[in-house]
């Protein structure tokens, strides 16, 4: 078996440093396996969060060689030779080592009104056609890993947490806004409260999403276009206000 060195951030919100650990690595190992081995052999108090080890719970998000990724889905042999750098997420407050406090995201989620379905059909059922939910089903793949939130420069670098809910919640908003049964009017909030205009569509969220959701092209831009219909398109405005059509 080969040896590999990992440069891992150790510390809390007061400060800390990178510490190097060298362990044996084998074929098929992922970054999370290496962290477990480091915990077993070198430092049992190294903090990291994980749960499913199958890319489905979204707990093990961290930054590997500078890129936000799921540590349980990042195979060591997919990384270039040499030391592997491992850091906690940048966009959220650090708790300890590789664990950040992502509760801000749960607060955002609470701000979004749930589905407000239209009345049931005469036989008491809700009916939807597959072609009407295809779009929305893509968004339901989200595992809430918040890698997109972490990489989004609006949050990560510009710290506009007060202005912009971030790509994950633009996805959730798109999922509701495009839902064939939803009756809530969400456009005003999408622009004013959730901050669609803060996104400059540079697509880093889409690049890091482990579920390959077309965050920018299928969720955010279509929402921006709906916002244009309501607020910026003079012809649409004229048709709505003056001619009174929807």
């Amino acid at each position: 078996m080969a040896q590999r060195t990992f440069k891992i951030w150790r510390g809390d919100s007061e400060g800390g440093e990178f510490v190097d650990y060298t362990v044996e690595v084998g074929p098929g190992m992922v970054v999370l396996d290496a962290i477990h081995r480091i915990q077993a052999e070198h430092s049992s108090e190294l903090a990291c969060r994980w749960n499913c080890k199958a890319g489905k719970c979204g707990s093990c998000s961290m930054e590997i060689n500078g890129k936000p990724r799921l540590s349980c889905m990042t195979r060591l042999n997919s990384l270039p030779e040499g030391t592997v750098t491992i850091q906690p997420l940048k966009a959220f407050p650090l708790v300890k080592d590789l664990v950040t406090d992502v509760s801000w995201n749960f607060e955002q989620n609470k701000r979004i009104a749930p589905l407000k379905p239209k009345a049931r059909d005469a036989d008491g059922n809700h009916r939807m056609m597959q072609e009407d939910v295809d779009r929305v089903q893509e968004f339901r793949k989200c595992i809430e890993c918040f890698l997109c939130q972490d990489v989004c420069h609006v949050l990560r670098d510009h710290k506009k947490h007060e202005k912009f809910v971030g790509p994950r919640f633009m996805v959730r908003l798109a999922q509701l806004e495009m839902h064939p049964l939803d009756t809530d009017d969400r456009i005003e909030k999408i622009r004013k409260e959730f901050g669609s205009g803060w996104c400059n569509i540079t697509r880093c969220c889409t690049e890091v999403c482990p579920e390959h959701i077309g965050i920018t092209d299928n969720a955010i831009i279509p929402l921006k276009e709906r916002v244009v219909d309501r607020y910026y398109d003079p012809v649409a405005w004229f048709i709505r206000k003056v001619l009174g059509r929807k």
Binding site: W9, G11, S13, G15, G16, F18, E63, N65, G66, K67, P80, G82, T85, Q87, P88, L89, K90, L94, T100, D157
Partner: peptide, 15 residues
Amino acid sequence: IGGHKDSFGATTRSD
């Protein structure tokens, strides 16, 4: 904190 810097061009990306 976390080994993250904010200065222009700062990154730990190795690619």
